[in-house]
Amino acid sequence: MEQTNSQLKNQDTQSHEWDTRLHHATKATHEDWIGRGISYFCIGIIILVVASMLWFITSKGIATFTQNHVSLWKFLSGTNWAPDQGKIGALPMILGSFAVTFAAAIVATPFALGTAIFMTEISPNRGRKFLQPVIELLVGIPSVVYGFIGLAVVVPFMRHLVGGSGFGIISATFVLFVMVLPTITSMTVDSLRAVPRFYKEASLALGATRWQTVSRVILRSATSGILTAIIFGMARAFGEALAVQMVIGNAAIMPKNLISPASTLTSQLTTGIGDTIDGTLPNNALWSLALILLLMSLFFNALVRFIAKRGQLKHER
């Protein structure tokens, strides 16, 4: 009986000792707290910055409509951009932006697909060794360099070829084509490499040719990745300011053809922002252009997420 008691007592003290040992914070616990604290702090700052940017651009961007009482419809559909005279029709810039973006994407996509197929299916070794670094280099070249080359080479070439000044949508398209090509290519390469190897083997073992395998199996199952790549390319083209500004001519008039000077949202912003006074209509109008850019990039992001979700569903089903 006594023995049992002492045993119990012994167990009790032991459990008390273990209790403190298991509850007290060690170095590992403190590291956890510190790590979590740092992450929360950084996330907090980023959220704050993003939220204030959104608020800033939105509040400034809608001032045109709330303070200067310009109707939204007139802003979006008006073709006359002369903020000094109170005329702010943004349609020429909106059209310009969409024109160069779509044209660049349409021209770049076939080249990007071809390059990506070459790099993954036709010559994976050379692709990895030579083309991959070249493409990474192209991504890293600053846009002012592209713009400068466009100004020095493409514009004179177009002037020579079709006459006029050489500035215009077609020159901007060409410069953007070179700029978005590496983006689209490298993302397409990633999505082609992510196609499971066994799809390819299954197709080849059925007697399908390499071309049939690439076109009907590999490209098909990489479709959502490729679309994402194209949209990222378009987002880059839509948001590119400097290089476009250097070659498009910056005339805020409705684009009548591809070879006369035009302007985009970004080019108009970079050209105009230094010449306006804060709080006036010309300044507010530029903020409204920025707001359109912001909304478009949100739209591109949403589109990418939508496509990724669809792609996921297809593979899980």
Binding site: F198, L204, L206, G207, V217, S221
Partner: peptide, 29 residues
């Protein structure tokens, strides 16, 4: 050769298509 000498792999590898399309793919090829 591969049309006459068919192959089935270790891991089942149907395409992410319908049952019908899986067979039709081979025949169309």
């Amino acid at each position: 050769i591969r049309r006459h000498i068919g192959m089935v792999f270790q891991r089942p590898n149907p395409f992410a298509k319908s049952i019908r399309e899986n067979i039709v793919y081979a025949l169309r090829a």
